[in-house]
């Protein structure tokens, strides 16, 4: 399976500049690149140093609504060329337009009947302009969705902003997407791409949001559904985690999450976590973007710390308490049925 890295970020946030840097790294020398631009005349591919058959410019149009089929066609074409031995590549980088919602491309990779057996989600890398991020995040839903979908965030233009402002921006981005690790363009390319993949920091993300609203005592032996959350007052975007001590019934959990995303996928920017499934020794990691959930990963072993399920949500205008109650109602039913 060939990993596909999605490079996204708002207009002018430095995606192409970062892509140029990424392609200089030896580990990226085998990368094929797809570039999508919004406008009649595409320029970004001219800005890349390495112009060859592995760089494909998609036609004009916003990637999130008009060129999903075109992404599929371009990936299929690349794969055909590789099969015929005309080109070789070991990963693909898709640079989206600055107005793109990352979800449809990820959905294309997962749902396309042919592509899904040749390509896999290699992670979402989002550039954030340190100078203009504040206004963009507040006023442009696309920018917020790009940040929420990120596995790694790269802050650009940090040399034009005071260090305190950069620190505050990092803090704010961490509240929007506590699971994403944040880099700047001052970091080495090696560190930006090392070990990169979807669900990059599932465990640290879940750990970062420890329960704050519940104090256990000696009499407290029930199954816990802790909720802690961070709220960006200017956005209405909330990140919060559910922490569940009891083992989860996989079937009922799947029913509940599918139902939740069917109704609220457009407001749940991200869900990811690590689950203790009843009857399984090893943990299962899940991660999803809006309506899409990737195939769950069976992890090799439990990370250090308590063996409990942790689910992190990044969402807009939904109540964490209601989600907690819904989760308990659905999975509690499953526990009763399993015991019977």
């Amino acid at each position: 399976m060939t990993p596909v890295i999605l490079l996204t970020g708002f207009l002018g946030s430095g995606k192409t500049t970062l892509l140029q840097r990424l392609l200089t790294d030896p580990s990226m020398q085998g990368a094929a690149v797809l570039i999508n631009e919004f406008g009649d005349v595409g320029l970004d591919h001219h800005l890349l140093d390495r112009i060859d058959d592995n760089v494909v410019l998609l036609k004009s149009g916003c990637i999130c609504c008009t060129v999903r089929g075109e992404v599929a066609d371009a990936l299929s074409n690349l794969d055909s060329l590789r099969t015929r031995g005309e080109i070789s590549f070991d990963r693909v980088v898709i640079e989206t337009t600055g107005l793109a919602d990352p979800y449809p491309v990820l959905q294309t990779l997962t749902a396309h009947p042919v592509l899904r057996s040749h390509f896999t989600n290699g992670g979402v890398l989002t550039t954030v302009d340190a100078v203009n991020a504040g206004g963009q995040v507040e006023h442009r839903a696309e920018a917020a969705r790009q940040i929420a979908a990120a596995d790694r965030i790269v802050l650009t233009k940090t040399d034009l902003v005071a260090a305190d402002d950069v620190a505050r921006l990092k803090q704010r981005l961490s509240k929007i997407n506590p699971g994403a690790s944040i880099y700047t363009t001052l970091d080495s390319v090696e560190s930006l791409v090392a070990g990169f993949g979807p669900g990059d920091h599932i465990v640290p993300a879940a750990r970062a949001t420890q329960p704050e609203d519940h104090v256990c005592d000696a009499h407290c032996d029930h199954a816990h559904h802790h909720v802690s959350h961070h709220h960006d007052d200017q956005l209405g975007i909330i990140s919060f985690s559910l922490i569940i001590d009891a083992e989860i019934d996989w079937t009922m959990f799947g029913t509940w999450l599918t139902l939740l995303l069917n109704r609220y996928g457009d407001r749940i920017f991200r869900v990811k976590g690590i689950l203790a499934i009843a009857g399984e020794d090893r943990p299962v990691a899940i991660h999803g973007v809006q309506h899409l959930v990737h195939a769950p990963t069976h992890m090799e072993h439990w990370p250090e710390g308590p063996r409990q399920s942790r689910l992190v949500f990044i969402l807009e205008d939904l109540s964490p308490d209601l989600i907690k109650r819904s989760f308990a109602a659905f999975t509690g039913l499953a526990q009763v049925r399993t015991a019977a």
Binding site: L259, R263, S326, A329, F330
Partner: peptide
């Protein structure tokens, strides 16, 4: 009609089933 997992009535109904 919707199947809304955050609908209070559906949640209560699921709690009753449990």
């Amino acid at each position: 009609r919707d199947f809304d997992p955050l609908d209070e009535n559906l949640i209560s109904w699921m709690e009753d089933q449990r």
